[in-house]
């Protein structure tokens, strides 16, 4: 729900135009949208401590208001196996502009989906579900709906993906937790309706879905540059 900590994050992020990933995950958590265990480490010692708590292997990502696209500056890595690999990563990214630390995060598994939203000029807030990962823009296997989503919207969105077989136990994999995915989408819709006056777009890519549930492994919230009016 839209609580004080969400409003504070939005206020503090307005100047840079987008919400840093650790803050975006705090917003997701306020709406009951789960992510893998993660912590924002401001120095190397803290990063090593957090990695020990989470348990190797971990993913690590640079936190910097100057870095929107982390992979373009090699600011993200997965599968770090020990302290020395994490130290090496930390030291390398600490030289990036406006460095504010590293997000250390547990590794998630499952089918990679993308869940997103944008403010459409003609229709206001719209929500996207697609087969995610790095090739998302090549296959463009997505379902779109005007927000807010109904339960019927959510089920038909999942069903209309060409890749929906991937979610239903394709080639011996376990069927994903559909109830968790549906709940995720409905709660995400609630978040989108609340943030609509402030946002331009949200990407959760990838969202890992498995038989254990759905975890948002990355989240980017772009804020709107000018005032917009959103009718209910």
């Amino acid at each position: 729900m839209l609580n004080d900590s969400v409003l504070t994050i939005i206020d503090q992020s307005r100047a840079q135009g987008w919400v840093l990933e650790p803050d975006a995950k705090t917003i997701l958590a306020a709406y009951g949208l789960p992510a893998p265990p993660h912590a924002w480490a401001r120095n190397l010692d803290q990063a090593l401590l957090e990695a020990a708590t989470i348990g190797y292997p971990v993913a690590a990502k640079v936190v910097s208001p100057a870095v929107i696209h982390k992979s373009e500056v090699q600011g993200v890595t997965a599968g770090l196996k020990n302290d020395s690999e994490l130290s090496e990563f930390y030291q390398r990214v600490s030289g990036l502009p406006e460095f504010q630390g590293v997000l250390v995060e547990g590794m998630a598994e499952g089918v990679e989906l993308i869940v997103g939203a944008k403010i459409d000029h003609q229709f206001g807030p719209v929500i996207l579900l697609g087969i995610g990962g790095t090739s998302v823009e090549i296959y463009q296997d997505v379902a779109l709906r005007m927000a807010p989503l109904t339960e019927q919207d959510v089920t038909t969105m999942v069903g209309e993906l060409k890749g929906s077989r991937l979610l239903n136990g394709y080639r011996g994999a376990a069927v994903i937790d559909h109830a968790a995915l549906n709940t995720f989408l409905l709660r995400f819709s609630e978040l989108v309706m609340d943030l609509a006056p402030e946002m331009e777009s949200i990407d959760i890519n990838p969202l890992f879905c498995s038989d254990h549930g759905c975890l948002a492994a990355d989240a980017r919230i772009m804020l709107s540059t000018g005032p917009v009016t959103i009718p209910k």
Binding site: L128, E137, E200, S201
Partner: peptide
Amino acid sequence: SHTASLAGDYQV
């Protein structure tokens, strides 16, 4: 964003 690129005006 990916969403903005995948959800073009006409697709929406």
